[in-house]
Design a protein around this nucleic acid. Structure first.
Length: 575
DNA sequence: GCCGTTTTCGGCCCGACTGTTTTCAGTCG
């Protein structure tokens, strides 16, 4: 088992122990260790071999033994026994907002409810009302939660699907006879939620054998369909993979067809028709004769279009722009010069400032905008003024000794209920930048929440607005707010809006980026990193920025260090 | 479960909200 799988397993143990009603500090120890492990940059195999696991903070003798057993055997007796105590569906109930371990346990102990279906039925029968601690409101909220969970079944976050798609694609590319292969569909368009994985390949011959190999890939749970050119299967994580094999001459058109959204494809076919051509998944045809084209680029060219990057094939005007040759040069990962929004062990990050800085440097960044949590965020170890002073001294020291990377002093300040920031002005003015974010009091109505955010944006010390809606993809709806007013205020006050690059957030949503940009808003692509590994999430943010048609000039962290420093100084209320 | 030490146990983050209760338990971040 690798680091990630072990982290997931520890997470599972923590959850089961919560259901069991174990000491909350014990369950937290498992969750903490899982998080630390996931962000661990050391070679786990080496730590196991040298019996140095207990050097990892939060890992003691007991956890070290379990991690070792998992690493060596892929199994854990302790977990297997634990699992026997509960029906398999029970932990799934914890996905419902408002249902925690205590309530789930009551539902199971008193009513033997251990699946969504049973729970829904019991709610509809009003049977939850008799349970201690439950009432009409709870029942109503559970029903709403079930509906939400149902709506998103068969959905996966981009990063989950991407990881799976990458290894399947690699396996396909290695199969004998395969000439070209690519991921298609919504994954290639970098959508934040994915329903299935599309893989398109071309082959010279031996398609039958390729299909055989495909359906026998490791991790396949069920073969849903297997034909001469198309197969579908479901893999263990639950995601469906559709695989299409065509001839190499057909490949460009097939890839095009399996990438664009439906409306984009319809529009492309319509355009071809106006030119006396026919476009389908097998090629571009004049009459019955296929026009020989080697790539997607050549198809666009043959239709008189500039190349349209996959991310924007969403039927949002891109074909019109391509006809005019005006498709912008979208931002790329290599354009990013540095990143803001990173946490360290000062608050809830897993690594020291120094470790984070050298990890950032290894990724090619020239600056790291450190932003731990502010004092109100007790749940995340928010920084008291005294702790801040210590942190600033440490950063000054590191900036003297580190070469090639500069650490910028920032904070992720909670936006309090009344819209004010979390420190007095004399502290706020000492930061290089301030990210203002909401972490509590989500339930305000739209008007109050909008007012709260506007007040935060009007604060002269605010540099940028963090994760604008607080949504968690497939986990929680964002809070109610008036997007237009927020965009307007940000533009007027020259405040940056964060594109939170965590694959759990991807907030602000790409659908609003173009609009905000046109109003004059600038953005920052922020990894919201809680570990060195987390810095790489910048990749997901770039994808979302591309979906929003952004170019490097729209994104402040494409500026080199000297420029960003004078930019931050200029935006500061002190200047 | 971990951790630290005034070390082998006791503390571990805590405040706010919601929906239940009638003084508080559970959930959340």
């Amino acid at each position: 088992m690798d680091k990630k799988e072990i982290a997931r397993t520890l997470e599972e143990i923590g959850t089961l122990l919560e259901l069991k009603g174990e000491n909350p500090f014990k369950t937290r120890a498992y969750h903490n260790a899982a998080r630390t492990l996931e962000g661990l940059s050391d070679d786990l195999g080496l730590l196991v071999k040298e019996e140095r696991l207990t050097e990892i903070p939060g890992v003691g003798v007991a956890l070290a033994e379990k991690i070792t057993e998992l690493f060596k055997t892929g199994k854990l007796k302790y977990l297997e026994n634990l699992k026997k105590e509960f029906p398999p569906g029970l932990p799934g109930l914890l996905c419902i907002p408002g249902l925690g371990p205590k309530k789930v346990k009551i539902l199971f102990d008193r009513m033997e409810i251990h699946s969504l279906g049973e729970l829904e039925y019991a709610c509809k029968e009003n049977r939850l009302l008799d349970l201690k601690g439950f009432g009409a409101k709870t029942q109503e909220n559970i029903l709403k939660g079930i509906e939400y969970t149902r709506k998103h079944q068969g959905s996966f976050r981009f990063d989950q699907a991407y990881e799976t798609a990458e290894w399947i694609l690699k396996a396909v590319q290695k199969m004998p006879g395969v000439l070209r292969a690519s991921v298609g569909g919504s994954l290639r368009r970098r959508k934040e939620i994915i329903h299935d994985i599309d893989i398109v390949a071309s082959a010279r011959s031996g398609v039958e054998k390729i299909m055989d190999r495909f359906t026998r890939l490791s991790g396949v749970e069920e073969v849903l369909a297997k034909g001469e050119t198309k197969s579908s299967l479901r893999i263990a994580t639950g995601i469906q993979v559709d695989f299409r094999v065509v001839s190499d001459a057909e490949y460009p058109a097939a890839l095009l067809y399996f990438t664009g959204n439906k409306e984009h494809n319809t529009a492309m076919r319509g355009l071809a028709k106006t030119q006396g051509l026919k476009l389908n998944e097998y090629g571009l045809f004049r009459g019955e004769k296929r026009i020989p084209l080697k790539s997607e680029e050549e198809i666009f060219e043959a239709l008189g279009l500039a190349y349209i990057p996959p991310e924007i094939r969403e039927a949002e005007g891109e074909i019109e722009w391509a006809r005019k040759g005006k498709i912008p040069d979208l931002i790329e990962e290599k354009d990013i010069q540095g990143v803001f929004h990173a946490h360290s062990t000062y608050s809830d990050g897993t690594a020291t400032i120094e470790t984070m800085a050298s990890a950032a440097q290894k990724l090619g960044f020239k600056y790291l905008g450190l932003s731990d949590h502010s004092q109100s965020a007790a749940y995340a170890g928010g920084l008291s003024p005294a702790k801040l002073k210590k942190q600033w001294a440490e950063i000054d020291e590191l900036n003297r000794s580190l070469k090639g990377i500069k650490i910028l002093k920032g904070i992720e300040s909670d936006i309090l209920a009344d819209g004010s920031l979390d420190y007095p002005d004399e502290i706020l003015k000492r930061f290089d930048f301030v990210i203002a974010s909401i972490h509590s009091r989500f339930q305000m109505n739209e008007e109050a929440m909008t007012r709260r955010l506007i007040k935060a944006l009007e604060n002269p010390y605010t540099t940028m607005l963090g994760h604008k809606t607080g949504r968690l993809i497939l986990g929680r709806e964002g809070y109610a707010l008036n997007v237009d007013k927020i965009i307007e205020t940000a533009a007027k006050r020259k405040k940056i809006i964060e594109i939170n690059a965590s694959p759990h957030r991807l907030d602000m949503d790409w659908r609003y980026l173009k609009k905000a940009r046109d109003k004059g808003v600038k953005f920052s692509i922020n990894p919201d990193a809680h570990s060195p590994e987390g810095l790489k999430d910048t990749f997901y943010g770039v994808g979302i920025a591309r979906k929003g048609w952004l170019i490097p000039a729209d994104v402040i962290n494409t500026m080199p260090l000297s420029q960003i420093e004078s930019f931050l100084a200029k935006e500061s209320p002190l200047s």
